[in-house]
Protein backbone atom coordinates (compact mmCIF):
# COMPACT_ATOMS: atom_id res chain seq x y z
CA UNK A 1 0.00 0.00 0.00
CA UNK A 2 1.39 3.42 -0.95
CA UNK A 3 2.27 5.74 1.97
CA UNK A 4 -0.33 8.29 0.84
CA UNK A 5 -3.11 5.67 0.74
CA UNK A 6 -2.06 4.36 4.13
CA UNK A 7 -2.14 7.87 5.58
CA UNK A 8 -5.63 8.51 4.14
CA UNK A 9 -6.87 5.20 5.51
CA UNK A 10 -5.56 6.05 8.96
CA UNK A 11 -7.13 9.51 8.85
CA UNK A 12 -10.49 8.14 7.71
CA UNK A 13 -10.45 5.50 10.45
CA UNK A 14 -9.60 8.14 13.02
CA UNK A 15 -12.42 10.36 11.79
CA UNK A 16 -14.91 7.48 11.93
CA UNK A 17 -13.73 6.59 15.43
CA UNK A 18 -14.15 10.20 16.53
CA UNK A 19 -17.56 10.33 14.90
CA UNK A 20 -18.73 7.20 16.71
CA UNK A 21 -17.42 8.17 20.13
CA UNK A 22 -18.52 11.81 19.84
CA UNK A 23 -22.05 10.80 18.88
CA UNK A 24 -22.47 8.11 21.51
CA UNK A 25 -25.16 9.11 24.02
CA UNK A 26 -23.37 7.07 26.69
CA UNK A 27 -20.13 9.03 26.37
CA UNK A 28 -18.91 9.78 29.89
CA UNK A 29 -21.26 7.16 31.38
CA UNK A 30 -20.28 3.73 32.66
CA UNK A 31 -22.17 0.49 32.27
CA UNK A 32 -23.30 -0.21 35.85
CA UNK A 33 -25.64 -3.16 35.51
CA UNK A 34 -28.20 -4.97 33.43
CA UNK A 35 -31.77 -4.97 34.69
CA UNK A 36 -35.42 -5.28 33.74
CA UNK A 37 -36.95 -1.80 33.57
CA UNK A 38 -40.14 -1.48 35.59
CA UNK A 39 -42.31 1.48 36.56
CA UNK A 40 -40.09 1.83 39.65
CA UNK A 41 -37.31 3.05 37.34
CA UNK A 42 -39.23 4.67 34.46
CA UNK A 43 -42.69 6.20 34.58
CA UNK A 44 -45.00 5.18 31.75
CA UNK A 45 -46.28 7.83 29.36
CA UNK A 46 -49.72 6.28 29.76
CA UNK A 47 -51.22 7.32 33.06
CA UNK A 48 -52.97 4.54 35.00
CA UNK A 49 -55.19 6.97 36.90
CA UNK A 50 -56.54 9.16 34.11
CA UNK A 51 -56.59 9.42 30.34
CA UNK A 52 -54.34 11.91 28.55
CA UNK A 53 -55.36 13.99 25.55
CA UNK A 54 -52.87 15.50 23.10
CA UNK A 55 -53.16 17.83 20.14
CA UNK A 56 -51.31 15.92 17.45
CA UNK A 57 -49.58 16.97 14.25
CA UNK A 58 -48.18 14.31 11.90
CA UNK A 59 -46.06 15.44 8.94
CA UNK A 60 -45.38 12.66 6.48
CA UNK A 61 -43.49 13.75 3.35
CA UNK A 62 -45.75 16.42 1.80
CA UNK A 63 -48.85 15.43 3.79
CA UNK A 64 -49.87 16.88 7.13
CA UNK A 65 -52.46 15.29 9.40
CA UNK A 66 -53.66 17.00 12.53
CA UNK A 67 -56.00 15.80 15.22
CA UNK A 68 -56.19 14.56 18.78
CA UNK A 69 -54.50 11.58 20.37
CA UNK A 70 -56.09 10.00 23.41
CA UNK A 71 -54.05 7.70 25.65
CA UNK A 72 -56.13 5.67 28.05
CA UNK A 73 -55.54 2.67 30.26
CA UNK A 74 -58.70 0.57 30.24
CA UNK A 75 -57.62 -2.20 32.62
CA UNK A 76 -54.52 -3.40 34.47
CA UNK A 77 -52.83 -4.69 31.31
CA UNK A 78 -54.58 -2.87 28.47
CA UNK A 79 -54.34 0.66 27.09
CA UNK A 80 -55.51 2.37 23.94
CA UNK A 81 -53.96 5.01 21.71
CA UNK A 82 -56.66 6.62 19.58
CA UNK A 83 -56.22 9.29 16.91
CA UNK A 84 -59.28 11.36 15.92
CA UNK A 85 -59.48 14.41 13.68
CA UNK A 86 -60.57 17.75 15.11
CA UNK A 87 -63.87 17.21 13.30
CA UNK A 88 -64.41 13.99 15.22
CA UNK A 89 -63.62 11.19 12.76
CA UNK A 90 -61.55 8.36 14.23
CA UNK A 91 -58.43 7.63 12.17
CA UNK A 92 -56.87 4.75 14.07
CA UNK A 93 -57.08 2.91 17.37
CA UNK A 94 -54.16 0.86 18.70
CA UNK A 95 -54.60 -1.46 21.64
CA UNK A 96 -51.51 -1.87 23.83
CA UNK A 97 -51.45 -5.04 25.88
CA UNK A 98 -48.40 -6.62 27.52
CA UNK A 99 -46.07 -4.46 25.42
CA UNK A 100 -47.72 -5.57 22.19
CA UNK A 101 -49.57 -3.16 19.94
CA UNK A 102 -52.58 -4.34 17.97
CA UNK A 103 -54.49 -2.32 15.41
CA UNK A 104 -58.17 -2.29 16.41
CA UNK A 105 -59.44 0.19 13.83
CA UNK A 106 -58.14 2.23 10.93
CA UNK A 107 -59.95 4.72 8.71
CA UNK A 108 -60.04 2.93 5.37
CA UNK A 109 -58.05 5.46 3.28
CA UNK A 110 -55.21 5.12 5.80
CA UNK A 111 -55.23 1.34 5.63
CA UNK A 112 -51.80 0.93 4.05
CA UNK A 113 -49.43 -1.64 5.60
CA UNK A 114 -46.26 0.48 5.19
CA UNK A 115 -47.88 3.52 6.77
CA UNK A 116 -49.43 1.52 9.60
CA UNK A 117 -46.13 -0.25 10.38
CA UNK A 118 -44.40 3.10 10.52
CA UNK A 119 -47.06 4.58 12.78
CA UNK A 120 -47.16 1.52 15.01
CA UNK A 121 -43.38 1.56 15.51
CA UNK A 122 -43.37 5.27 16.26
CA UNK A 123 -46.27 5.08 18.68
CA UNK A 124 -44.54 2.18 20.48
CA UNK A 125 -41.42 4.29 20.68
CA UNK A 126 -43.30 7.31 22.02
CA UNK A 127 -45.11 5.17 24.61
CA UNK A 128 -41.80 3.57 25.70
CA UNK A 129 -43.10 0.11 24.83
CA UNK A 130 -39.63 -1.00 23.67
CA UNK A 131 -38.21 -0.17 27.10
CA UNK A 132 -40.70 -1.03 29.80
CA UNK A 133 -40.43 -4.58 31.19
CA UNK A 134 -37.41 -5.29 28.99
CA UNK A 135 -33.93 -6.27 30.16
CA UNK A 136 -31.48 -3.53 29.18
CA UNK A 137 -28.00 -2.15 29.91
CA UNK A 138 -27.97 0.65 32.48
CA UNK A 139 -25.36 3.42 32.19
CA UNK A 140 -24.71 5.82 35.02
CA UNK A 141 -22.37 8.70 35.75
CA UNK A 142 -20.99 9.57 39.16
CA UNK A 143 -22.68 12.61 40.69
CA UNK A 144 -25.39 12.75 38.01
CA UNK A 145 -29.13 12.07 38.34
CA UNK A 146 -29.44 11.08 34.73
CA UNK A 147 -29.32 7.45 33.72
CA UNK A 148 -29.21 5.96 30.25
CA UNK A 149 -30.86 2.70 29.30
CA UNK A 150 -29.50 0.96 26.23
CA UNK A 151 -31.43 -1.63 24.32
CA UNK A 152 -29.93 -3.47 21.38
CA UNK A 153 -31.40 -5.71 18.74
CA UNK A 154 -30.06 -6.96 15.43
CA UNK A 155 -30.68 -3.76 13.50
CA UNK A 156 -30.93 -0.94 16.02
CA UNK A 157 -29.76 0.42 19.34
CA UNK A 158 -32.16 2.42 21.49
CA UNK A 159 -30.86 4.90 24.06
CA UNK A 160 -33.27 6.25 26.69
CA UNK A 161 -31.95 9.27 28.57
CA UNK A 162 -33.78 9.47 31.89
CA UNK A 163 -33.93 11.52 35.06
CA UNK A 164 -33.71 8.93 37.84
CA UNK A 165 -35.42 10.89 40.68
CA UNK A 166 -38.50 11.80 38.59
CA UNK A 167 -38.43 8.50 36.62
CA UNK A 168 -39.02 10.46 33.41
CA UNK A 169 -37.49 9.97 29.96
CA UNK A 170 -36.20 13.19 28.44
CA UNK A 171 -34.93 11.79 25.17
CA UNK A 172 -34.90 8.63 23.08
CA UNK A 173 -32.35 8.03 20.35
CA UNK A 174 -32.65 5.19 17.85
CA UNK A 175 -29.39 4.45 16.08
CA UNK A 176 -28.65 2.15 13.20
CA UNK A 177 -25.17 0.82 12.52
CA UNK A 178 -23.91 4.22 11.37
CA UNK A 179 -26.21 7.03 12.35
CA UNK A 180 -29.17 8.30 14.34
CA UNK A 181 -32.43 7.17 12.72
CA UNK A 182 -35.00 8.64 15.11
CA UNK A 183 -35.06 11.13 17.93
CA UNK A 184 -37.84 11.66 20.50
CA UNK A 185 -37.87 14.51 23.01
CA UNK A 186 -40.18 14.82 26.02
CA UNK A 187 -41.20 17.71 28.29
CA UNK A 188 -43.22 17.27 31.47
CA UNK A 189 -45.70 19.25 33.54
CA UNK A 190 -45.43 19.78 37.29
CA UNK A 191 -47.23 16.48 37.93
CA UNK A 192 -44.69 14.53 35.93
CA UNK A 193 -47.05 13.89 33.00
CA UNK A 194 -45.67 14.29 29.47
CA UNK A 195 -46.82 17.71 28.24
CA UNK A 196 -44.97 17.83 24.93
CA UNK A 197 -43.55 15.01 22.82
CA UNK A 198 -41.68 15.48 19.57
CA UNK A 199 -40.56 12.59 17.35
CA UNK A 200 -38.46 13.07 14.25
CA UNK A 201 -37.04 10.60 11.75
CA UNK A 202 -33.61 11.31 10.32
CA UNK A 203 -32.57 10.34 6.82
CA UNK A 204 -34.84 9.04 4.09
CA UNK A 205 -38.10 8.82 6.00
CA UNK A 206 -39.52 12.30 6.36
CA UNK A 207 -41.89 11.85 9.28
CA UNK A 208 -42.46 14.10 12.28
CA UNK A 209 -44.95 13.62 15.08
CA UNK A 210 -45.64 16.34 17.62
CA UNK A 211 -47.98 15.96 20.61
CA UNK A 212 -49.02 18.74 22.96
CA UNK A 213 -51.14 17.95 26.02
CA UNK A 214 -54.55 19.61 26.28
CA UNK A 215 -57.43 19.35 28.69
CA UNK A 216 -60.50 17.33 27.74
CA UNK A 217 -62.90 19.64 29.57
CA UNK A 218 -64.03 22.98 28.17
Amino acid sequence: MAPLQLRNLCLNSLLLLLLFTACSPTQGYKLSKREVVSSAQVKSIINADSSRLYKAGISLYSKYYSGLILLKQTDATTSHLVFVTELGMKMFDFQIRDNEMKLIYVFEPLNKPELLNLLENDMKLICLQHLLNKEVDVYEKAGENSRIYKLQNKKQRHFYVTDAPSRTVSRVLVKGSMRVKENVEYSYDSNGNASHIKLKHKGFIRLKIELTAITKKV
Binding site: S51, L68, L70, K72, T74, H80, V82, V84, K216, V218
Partner: peptide
Protein backbone atom coordinates in the same frame (compact mmCIF):
# COMPACT_ATOMS: atom_id res chain seq x y z
CA UNK B 1 -70.48 22.33 20.71
CA UNK B 2 -68.97 19.09 19.50
CA UNK B 3 -68.82 15.97 21.63
CA UNK B 4 -66.86 12.94 20.54
CA UNK B 5 -68.09 9.94 22.51
CA UNK B 6 -65.80 6.91 22.36
CA UNK B 7 -68.07 4.16 23.55
CA UNK B 8 -65.47 1.40 23.98
CA UNK B 9 -63.25 3.63 26.06
CA UNK B 10 -66.08 5.37 27.96
CA UNK B 11 -64.44 8.63 27.02
CA UNK B 12 -65.80 11.97 25.83
CA UNK B 13 -63.91 14.79 24.15
CA UNK B 14 -65.78 18.08 24.08
CA UNK B 15 -64.77 21.01 21.90
CA UNK B 16 -66.46 24.34 21.20
Amino acid sequence: TQVKNMSMLSEKITSK
